[in-house]
Amino acid sequence: MAEPGRSSLPLPDYDHLPIGGLESRVRSLSAEEVEELIAYERTHADRLPVTELLTARLEQLHSGAEPTSGDPSALRPEQAQGRVGSHVSPATSPQPFSPPPHGTPDQRGKPKGDRF
Rank of each mutant, 00 (worst) to 15 (best):
Y14Q: 02
E23Q: 10
E35R: 05
E36W: 01
S89I: 03
G21S: 12
S28N: 03
S63Y: 01
E59A: 13
P90K: 11
S69R: 10
T43L: 11
A74R: 04
A2T: 09
E32W: 01
E78L: 03
L61W: 01
Q95M: 11
L58Y: 02
E33F: 01
S63R: 09
P100V: 13
L11E: 03
R27W: 08
P72L: 05
T68R: 09
Q60Y: 00
D13M: 00
R57Q: 11
Q60K: 08
S93R: 13
S98Q: 15
P12Q: 02
S24M: 09
F116Y: 12
G85C: 05
H102C: 11
R25W: 01
I19D: 01
E59S: 05
L75T: 10
D15G: 00
T92E: 11
G109T: 12
P105A: 10
L61M: 06
D46S: 08
L9M: 03
G109F: 07
R83T: 07
A2W: 01
R27K: 14
D13C: 04
S86L: 09
P105V: 12
S28L: 03
G82L: 04
S63C: 04
L29S: 05
S63G: 12
P99H: 14
S30T: 13
R115G: 09
H102L: 13
L48T: 12
T55C: 02
R115H: 15
T68H: 09
P99N: 12
P94D: 10
I38A: 01
R47I: 07
R25P: 05
E59M: 06
R42G: 13
S8C: 09
H62T: 01
E33I: 01
E23S: 07
R76G: 00
M1Y: 03
S24K: 11
L22Y: 04
D46A: 12
G109W: 07
E23R: 08
F97M: 15
T104D: 08
R47A: 10
R57D: 03
S63M: 02
M1A: 11
A91M: 10
V26L: 07
L37C: 03
D46F: 06
S98P: 12
E35N: 02
A74L: 05
Q81W: 08
P105L: 13
A80G: 04
A2G: 08
A91K: 08
S86E: 07
G82T: 06
R115Q: 12
R115W: 10
P96A: 10
R57E: 13
A56F: 10
S98K: 15
P105T: 05
S98A: 15
S69I: 01
L75E: 11
P99G: 14
L61K: 00
P90D: 08
G113L: 14
H44N: 15
L53G: 08
V88F: 03
K110C: 13
G5Q: 15
A2M: 07
D71H: 02
S73T: 06
